[in-house]
């Protein structure tokens, strides 16, 4: 395998460059997936049937916590990739670790929020609006959950094998995924929560 030392580690082989491009294309497909879910949500947002509307159940505090935690995690994973570029394995692992912990906190708050909704009688089965809300948030949350498992697996490999072209490539691709989830959350925060609370 030819390693091009002029490029950063994650781009250093042909295979690595293909994988990064492939993952960008995959993120394009993910954008379509979330756009469709948003379209479904906007179609059904006023169709609340006998259930509550968004303004009745949304609370700002947990949502703000989720937002701050997830945005910070995007920042820390950026620092992690920066550390990786300068070859600081330990700093990179620390930042990745912080990212995953923040992701777990986000998930914990989101689950608590879901439980609160259900206790208030707003379940996924109550109305079309709530079905689309839980599906949109749940799909994002499922992505975060998958990201926690995937990120842990990568962190473990970096610890065991060090920063090689393969592990650097995986870490970089994972950071793209994580940033993407953050972007989706910004849309959820703005157009689901803030708009719903107005």
């Amino acid at each position: 395998m030819k390693i091009d030392h002029a490029k950063p580690l994650e781009y250093s082989t042909e295979e690595n460059r293909l994988k990064i491009l492939g993952f960008w294309v995959f993120l394009g497909a993910e954008i379509v997936l979330f756009s469709t879910l948003f379209a479904v949500y906007f179609t059904l947002v006023n169709r609340t049937g006998n259930g509550p509307a968004g303004s009745h159940i949304f609370e700002l505090t947990p949502v703000m916590v989720e937002t701050i935690v997830l945005l910070s995690s995007s920042f820390t994973i950026g620092l992690g990739i920066h550390a990786m570029r300068i070859g600081a394995k330990k700093a990179m692992m620390t930042f990745f670790g912080i990212t995953l912990v923040l992701g777990a906190v986000f998930l914990g708050v989101e689950i608590t929020e879901f439980v609160t909704y259900v206790h208030e009688g707003a379940t996924i089965q109550t109305s079309a609006f709530l079905s689309s809300l839980f599906t949109l948030l749940g799909t994002h949350g499922a992505h975060v959950t998958f990201g926690l498992l995937w990120g842990s697996a990568i962190l473990f490999q970096v610890k065991k094998r060090g920063l090689t072209p393969e592990t650097a490539n995986k870490s970089f691709i994972f950071s793209l995924y994580w940033h993407f989830l953050d972007v989706v959350w910004i849309f959820i925060f703005s157009f689901v929560y803030l708009k719903g609370m107005m």
Partner: peptide, 13 residues
């Protein structure tokens, strides 16, 4: 799972 996306009641479409 009993959601209401395409249902005839509860706001489904």
């Amino acid at each position: 799972f009993g959601t209401q996306f395409f249902a005839m009641q509860n706001g489904g479409m």
